[in-house]
Computed example of a mutant assay.
Amino acid sequence: MNYLLSLLNLCRPVNLLLGCFTVLMSAYMMDEFPHVETLIEAIVVVVSFVGASNAFNDYVDFDIDTINRPNRPLPKLQLTKKSALHISIALFILGSVASIALEPAATTIAMGAVLPVAIVYSTSLKGLPLVGNAAVAFTVGMTFIFSGAAFGDAMALLTPAIITFGFSFIRELIKDIEDIEGDRRADLKTFPILFGDRVAAKLSSALIIALLVASVVPYCRGDYGMPYMMLFTLGVSWPLCISIGLLIGTPATQTYSNIANLMKVCMFVGLVAIGMGESILA
């Protein structure tokens, strides 16, 4: 049982739930719940790729995580590096095989875009300033494009994909500030290492403001209704405004960790807001 729990932690259960929830919300927005088989296949692909990416990242980042993430399964020696590699390969294969049963566009997105970027990120892009952040944000945002393709229209969910990309990019930048000590020892060249944590915090704050301004656009265009704007304001905008104050006024590793976790919650709330706003207009 402990071994299975360690495997689950390796794959990041919250991220798995977020991936599953994204596909479910995509199906809801596209009115595709009657197509249960397609829905299940899409969930298998997304959950497999999310788990595989996290396991592979931990395999590659073993030395870094002994400093930045000592409570993860590999640094705690609950699992071996070989086990992490094997589970990542198995999950990548499972996700790739499952994607073949979907629409060709979805298969192409999964195997031709998300899979290679996820692998290259861990091996080559992680330490590049902002490029690594964009790579992670790309794979997260593409969950909506993939889901849209699986349900017949890849561009139907472009707006939530863009918003999710923005969330993920900012969150990854904040995580880089949190991980600056271990990343520096690993000789990575992340943005906070090159320009300092204070500059990175100011950039993160500016990007949060830009994201909040951009989030109003779908409402102004009539894409989403008032429920979207109300829930987004209360459940996303206000927490992120508080995060800006903490980024600037309370610089500390724990602060950055708390903000990164808060942004993950805000992503859940943002998805619900989009679903509610679109359902009113349907």
Rank of each mutant, 00 (worst) to 15 (best):
A101M: 15
A101W: 14
P104S: 14
P104L: 13
T107D: 02
T107H: 03
T108P: 00
T108F: 13
I109Y: 04
I109S: 07
A110S: 15
A110N: 12
A110H: 03
M111D: 14
V114E: 05
P116G: 06
P116T: 04
V117N: 01
I119C: 11
I119G: 01
V120K: 04
T123G: 07
T123F: 14
L125F: 09
L125C: 08
L125E: 01
K126P: 07
K126I: 10
G127P: 13
G127Y: 06
L128F: 06
L128Y: 11
V131G: 02
G132I: 10
G132M: 06
N133W: 09
A134G: 09
A135F: 08
V136Q: 02
T139V: 15
V140N: 09
M142W: 13
T143G: 14
S147F: 10
G148W: 07
F151I: 05
D153M: 14
A156H: 00
A156M: 02
L157I: 00
L158F: 12
T159K: 07
I163T: 01
T164P: 04
F167Q: 11
F169P: 05
E172P: 02
L173T: 03
D176W: 09
D176V: 09
I177T: 06
I177D: 02
R184H: 13
D187I: 06
I193V: 11
F195V: 11
D197Q: 13
K202A: 09
L203I: 08
L203A: 03
L203W: 09
S204R: 01
L207D: 14
L207W: 12
I208M: 11
I209H: 00
L211R: 07
V213H: 13
S215N: 12
V217L: 14
P218A: 07
P218K: 09
Y219I: 09
C220T: 14
R221P: 01
Y224N: 00
Y224W: 05
M226G: 01
P227H: 12
P227Y: 08
Y228R: 08
Y228T: 07
M229E: 00
M229L: 12
F232H: 05
T233H: 10
G235I: 13
V236F: 13
S237W: 13
W238G: 03
W238H: 11
P239R: 15
